[in-house]
């Protein structure tokens, strides 16, 4: 009669790297996001630069009335919101990679990344609030600084 191995017999330990090099697939998702967001950002940023710097009077036309005129339309609100979020996540993730590449001391790397994430939160929250709580015709402002539709309405 042949004997089969006791199923509870200790197994040889699996060979493992001395240090786990990755936790889950987060870095893969980051890599894919850099490429997906990049493609969308080309459209959003080139459109933004064309409308603000090339069309009409170009950069010399930019003032409160110009911005207010754009954000009176939900189209530009959504455009700018998407651009803000995608560019900030893309840029923050890119700078995170660069910090990881060059900041070798743990303390320095931690401090740089903490400041990076703080800047991310401040800018994204502030930008989002401004886009949605913005009033193109603030009461008591001189009419010549406001877009024309504030007075004709």
């Amino acid at each position: 009669m042949t004997t089969i191995a006791d199923p509870k017999a200790p197994r040889p330990p699996k060979p493992r790297p001395a240090r786990l090099t990755t936790r889950g697939n987060t870095e893969l998702y980051g890599w894919v996001f850099m490429r997906a967001s990049g493609v969308i950002l080309v459209v959003l940023i080139f459109g933004h630069l064309f409308v603000n710097l090339v069309a009409g009077e170009g950069i010399s036309a930019i003032d409160f009335g110009f911005v207010a005129g754009k954000w009176a339309s939900p189209f530009w609100q959504i455009w700018d919101l998407l651009m803000l979020w995608l560019a900030m996540i893309h840029g923050t993730n890119g700078v995170r990679t660069i910090i990881n590449d060059y900041a070798e001391r743990d303390g320095v790397r931690l401090a740089l990344k903490a400041s990076l994430y703080l800047a991310f939160v401040v800018v994204v929250v502030l930008g989002t609030l401004v886009i949605f709580t913005f009033d193109p015709c603030p009461a008591g402002s001189p009419a010549d600084l406001l877009p024309s539709f504030c007075t004709t309405a």
């Binding site: 409160f64 009335g65 911005v67 207010a68 803000l84 800018v123 502030l126 930008g127 609030l129 401004v130 709580t133 913005f134 603030p138 402002s141 001189p142 600084l145 406001l146």
Partner: peptide, 12 residues
């Protein structure tokens, strides 16, 4: 983003 946020302060 910081300078554009000034539209929320005042047109001036």
């Amino acid at each position: 983003v910081l300078d554009t946020s000034l539209v929320r302060v005042s047109p001036e």
